[in-house]
Amino acid sequence: MGWSHEVTPSKRLLHGRNRIVRRLIWVVVIIAGYEIIRRGLEISPLALPPIVEIGSAFFAGFGEGDLLQQLVRSLILIAAALAAGAGAALGLALLSVRRSFFAELIDGLVAIFHPLPGIALLPIVILWFGTGTASLLVIIIHSVLWPMITNLTAGLRGVSPTQIMAGKNLGMGRSELFFRILLPASLPYIIAGMRIAWARSWRALISAEMVFGAIAGAGGIGWYLYSKRVFMDSAGLFAGVVLIILIGVLVEDVVFRRIQRKTVERWGMER
């Protein structure tokens, strides 16, 4: 009973099998549209490769392990950088919220670096860190850190003072207050920050990989795209792009939506 009145028709539409079916219909529509346009226009198959070739390049990429291997490499890098970036952002955000002395410095750093694209830093990063994984991590962390700080600071500042007092009243110490009150209370902001961070880091990583190239053949999904490009394997190129889209949708849907539904929405904290 308690739940049933919460599930409005629009929510039911968004969740469950209905949505998957509708999505599949869309995919079919888009694929069919693509193929019709391609055939109708007599465009070079290098510009618009047949869907069958894209499909077989996609599965071949998984079968031969190259695409999968590059993808795994990229995702591991992202996960590591997201964790490091989120940790650093949390520390800096806390510092900024707790000590107004640092707040100005951190706000300043965010104002300077937030709008700076990671790729613009590439030449400097190469000089400092070389061309290895370290540089990639630096570029991804850069793309993650600043939006995370912005969001976390807003989240921590937005925690209800009543709840903080209630926590203190219960005798919570500093760390308990942080983990039991501040962190869960700012979760909507943390999730929002993670979403931005993920989107940004995914983009930063792929573009960095495309510039960076491969080390010992391992260059991630961006490198996969780039190598398909230089060898003019258009079907492979499209397959890579399709994979990037799929990953984007999957992370958004499976990871973030699920976390959102299990926490923020369940707690009635939707912003």
Partner: peptide
């Protein structure tokens, strides 16, 4: 091939 690093000329 397994020891190549792809970089443009200036980099």
């Amino acid at each position: 091939d397994s020891r190549l690093v792809t970089l443009n000329h200036p980099n």
